[in-house]
Design a binder for these strands. Structure first.
Lengths: 344, 344
DNA sequence: CGGAAGATTGCATACGTATGCTGGAAAGCC
DNA sequence: GGCTTTCCAGCATACGTATGCAATCTTCCG
């Protein structure tokens, strides 16, 4: 019945010591009911004594299940050394969600141009993928449909309205935009500028803008397209967008920025132009990054449900793998009111 | 010569199509010189056409090398949902270092109490470990020697003077503390308080304090132990430590905080007590987290060589795995001077 | 032209686990 | 008591790759 122990223990060693066959060990350790309780306990005890652990490689090879998820970040070239703080928070949440389910997490940063779409699941490294990244949506839309075509299990963080194919999980950006808009309207603002791209290349931002517009219209105000300025999600872009807004000469009494980093850049520009916040201009950001509480004045912002997001993303991937129905993909957000948007 | 292709391609399928044996395919794809250039190219072409990728599980099982490193974060209970920004930056750097070397990165957050010391390398999931975490050093010193005893390959981020066993990579905390001290002395400060633990439980902080003391003595000033206040690395602790300092009634004209988070908390306390920064009190932090540039006034701080750190950590683990000599473990830091510490 | 060295490739097998199938024993049923 | 059913465990094998060794073919040299 098997060979004697030697070196790092294998299931054969346990089998030898327990006086059973290797398959019985395998079954016992996975809690298979077809092993009697008595032998199961004996085997588990011996395994514990020997500090035995199942070899993941052998196990994955045989069962074709890795119990691992690969998390793929990507950013389009910019910010080589800095990671978007929002994604970092997300990373924490995803890690926890995986740990809770006994999954391992592989992590990798990708440039948009890499062939990330094939590397992990094909190499049997992971059972599924989670995709995370800002950037021009059009650039990876093609990759995504390729993933769908290949039958890759994946979930992605993004805007839900824009792609029905593939499993996308995301905040209710439309509702969140409306929330921000209503808050600014309630505090008496009427001319609300939006800093952030608002086209189909950046659907998340676009939906936030749409939500703002909805709130304005509901209050009987027709949105002014001239108050929308493009900005990608970093501080410099926010500074430039706000500078352009100031230079345009148009009057405005509030700024809704598509991200906190944009908002922070904008506040710098406003300070440079001696506009007082919130007296002259109210500012609302998006994401509630740690720095948001530290600006002067502290930044009012929209907080996404990050800890829910990790859970939802992991659950969505698992649902695909196991053929279950995916969970609700849309997550609520809430407004964090701070000093940058007090009433006039 | 092997069976015909079916389903996801294997090395047998490639072999069949190329009219060679499976071992030859394996050798060709790994660039083994013992395969003639002609066949190697033919095989590579066919493999590319079929979108073939080596099955990592099978490969790892056979070769006993995973080409994967496991990154283990841990924090002692506090901050369940927030991750220390410094470690996040580190994560980015480590990820990049792994990618550059073709390594995969497994990531996992651990509580100090878990049995992380056995889970990864024993299960053959990773060739080596990187350990990252603040917390009471005494708490995991035992685990670390256990790792060493087991022959686990690992590198850890920490303070170098305090443990010779195992491979520790870290900043030159002593030198960095001296740097901060000299800067404050040059700007005319004489009574410099230190906020952060300074005992053997937190060797990194202790060495920063030691560096400060060295600088003081070199300037002919005997350090006043009453100006040192314990603080763990978060904002609240900084606030409390600074409050205690203020309440002590002792005079001081500068604060050197063991981390930026502590510094930020301290600045809040100073503002509450109407002490002007830097006119009344200069403040220097440590880490240069993103928020450091956003405080009012912007925080002078010490920047560790994070991108070098990731590289060094990965290299140290690899050196152990491959039996090479480890690289120099000590990394230099530099001072980032901002508004919080201008001359009086 | 014989033999040795070198270059290529194939053969056999190992890595450690999981699982379909078979077989024997115990238990339940009429 | 003979039958079916249930429970438990073993046998055989597959997962896909990497590698020591033997075998073949070239080439080269005396």
């Amino acid at each position: 019945m098997g060979r004697a122990p030697s070196g790092r223990p294998t299931s054969f060693d346990i089998a030898y010591l327990a006086g059973v066959s290797q398959p019985t060990v395998s079954r016992a350790l996975r809690g298979d009911r077809s092993v009697s309780a008595a032998t199961r306990e004996r085997i588990q005890r011996i395994a514990a004594e020997l500090n035995y652990t199942v070899d993941k490689n052998a196990s994955s090879l045989r069962s074709q299940r890795t119990h691992t998820i690969a998390l793929l970040f990507f950013e389009d070239g910019t910010d080589e050394n800095l990671i978007n703080p929002f994604f970092l928070a997300m990373l924490g949440s995803i890690t926890r969600a995986c740990a809770n389910r006994g999954l391992d997490l592989l992590i990798s940063f990708q440039r948009m141009e890499d062939d990330w779409h094939t590397r992990y699941q094909d190499a049997k490294r992971a059972d599924g993928l989670i995709l995370l990244g800002y950037g021009d949506y059009a650039l990876y839309a093609a990759r995504i449909s390729q993933l769908v075509a290949q039958g890759t299990h994946f979930a992605r963080w993004g805007s839900i309205r824009s792609d029905r194919s593939g499993a996308t999980v995301g905040s209710d950006n439309l509702g969140a935009g409306r929330l921000a808009g209503e808050h600014l309207l309630e505090s008496g603002r009427r001319r609300i500028a939006f800093l952030g791209h608002a086209d189909e290349h950046y659907p998340e931002f676009a939906h936030r803008y749409d939500g703002l517009c909805e709130a304005l219209r509901a209050a009987g105000i027709e949105p002014d397209p001239a108050l929308q300025f493009d900005a990608l999600t970093n501080e410099d872009a926010g500074y430039r967008a706000a500078s352009a807004l100031l230079a345009s000469g148009r009057s405005f009494d509030a700024i809704f920025a598509a991200s906190d980093l944009i908002a922070i850049g904008a506040m710098r520009a406003l300070a440079g132009a001696s506009r007082r916040i919130p007296a002259d201009v109210a500012v609302v950001g998006f994401d509630n990054i740690p720095s948001a509480g530290l600006t002067t004045p502290p930044l009012t912002t929209v907080q996404q449900d990050i800890s829910g997001a990790g859970d939802r993303l992991v659950e969505t991937v698992l649902a695909q793998i196991e053929g279950r129905d995916p969970p609700e993909p849309r997550l609520p957000s809430r407004l964090i009111v701070r000093g940058s948007s007090s009433a006039i």
